[in-house]
Structures are given as C-alpha cells and as structure tokens.
C-alpha cells in the first residue's frame, strides 16, 4: 500500500509539472465538440439529437490521444526498466499511474462536460446523467487505452497505430456511455444502463492493469 501511495504521488507530481499534458486533452475535448454545431447545424433540435454521441466520441478521442505518450517518458528515462526489474509487482505502480493519469486528464473532462452538454442544447435534467456516464466511462477508457499504449511503447509511431488497436476495444463503453444519455433523454430506465457501464468499469479496472503490466513486459522484451 505504501508503494502504491509513493507511486501515486510521484505520478501526480510528474504530471502536475507538465501542465500541457493536462490542459491539451481538455482543450481538445472542448474544441472537437465546438466543431459539430459549426459543421452540422446550430439548430437546437438537431444538436440535442447528436449531443450524446458527440460528447462521448470527443471524450473517447481525448482520452485516447492523451494516452499516446503515457509510458514514453518513463521508457526514455529508464524508469520503466527499473520498475519492471524491481521486486514490487508491476501491477501496483501501473495502477497508480493509471489512477494519476485519470485524475488529471479524465476527471477534468467529466467536470467540464455539463457546460458542453448545455452548449449542445441538452436538457438540464440529463446533465447529471452526462456527468455520471463520463465518470464511470472515462476511467475504463483510460485503462483500455493504456493496454494499447503499453504494447506500442517502444515504437516511435504511436498515434494512428494506437487508434487502430484501441478504438475497437472502446466500442462497448461507447455504446453504453452514449446509450445511457439517450435513454435519459427519452425518459427510459437509466440505472440499469449505468449499472452495465459500472460493470464494464469493474471489469477493466480489475483486469486491465494486469494486461497493461503484461504489455509493458512484452514491449521491454522481458
């Protein structure tokens, strides 16, 4: 547990000292969303119709792009090698890293989402559901994306490759994440769909870090 705390505070500190990595995904999220009213139509009815999907696709892409260099700096500085050879189980610092990354890049997306949802003309009564869905969904996206990031860490061309690997794995989270907002707008039963989203989070948060650790071991040739 003390290892976990130490790793967590290290990761938070490292991320905190490179604010671009925190701010860029957030601005990406805001910018992508503001493209849609300009490209499709500023009409409130149309916007409200596409809003759940737009919010979710933008959040998904922002999370994925923020993960591109997740392990790169650690690899270049040799920290990763030390981590893999240290007597600590790799899963522990990996979980800390994912948690730190989500706290500083995923959580801000959740916090600004009601503002954006309002700008996309979603009714006020669903703003809570928007936030809840992203709160349950973005950590799952972080963990799944980290698997792809771990597998491509040694390759100097993340970007598109990461997208090709990770996007198909994001689909279930996307379906239920955007689905729960749509259900809320139609006045359907929200808790059931939220529960499925929570189940996906439980699955990825429990098994995902193991896969990330295995991926890091494979990438470093151990």
């Amino acid at each position: 547990m003390s290892t976990f705390r130490a790793a967590l505070s290290r990761e938070l500190l490292v991320l905190w000292r490179s604010p671009a990595e925190i701010i860029n995904p957030l601005f990406f999220f805001v910018m992508v969303i503001s493209l849609f009213p300009l490209a499709i139509s500023p009409k409130p009815e149309t916007l409200a119709l596409i809003a759940p999907g737009v919010l979710w696709v933008a959040a998904l892409l922002a999370v994925m792009l923020s993960l591109d260099g997740l392990f790169r700096r650690d690899q270049e500085s040799g920290v990763l090698e030390q981590l893999l050879t240290s007597p600590v189980m790799t899963v522990v610092p990996v979980t800390a890293k994912l948690l730190a990354h989500w706290l500083l890049t995923g959580l801000p997306l959740v916090l600004v989402s009601p503002v954006l949802a309002h700008m996309l003309q979603l009714p006020d009564r669903v703003l809570g559901v928007v936030m809840l869905s992203l709160l349950l969904g973005t950590p799952a996206l972080t963990v799944i994306g980290a698997i792809g990031s771990a597998l491509t860490v040694g390759l100097n061309r993340g970007g598109i490759l990461l997208a090709v690997l990770v996007l198909p794995l994001y689909i279930p989270v996307l379906i239920f994440g955007a689905g729960v907002i749509r259900t809320a707008m139609e006045g359907g039963p929200v808790p059931g769909v939220l529960a499925i989203l929570g189940a996906l989070l439980a699955l990825t948060a429990s098994l995902g870090p193991l896969a990330v650790a295995a991926g890091l071991k494979i990438s470093s040739g151990n």
Binding site: I144, I147, G148, L151, L165, P168, L169, A211, A214, G215, I218, S219
Partner: peptide
C-alpha cells in the same frame, strides 16, 4: 504483443 491484444480482443 499481438497475442495479448488478441486475448483482450
């Protein structure tokens, strides 16, 4: 690496 991806897949 592809094997791990296939398992997750």
């Amino acid at each position: 690496a592809a094997g791990l991806l296939a398992i997750v897949g």
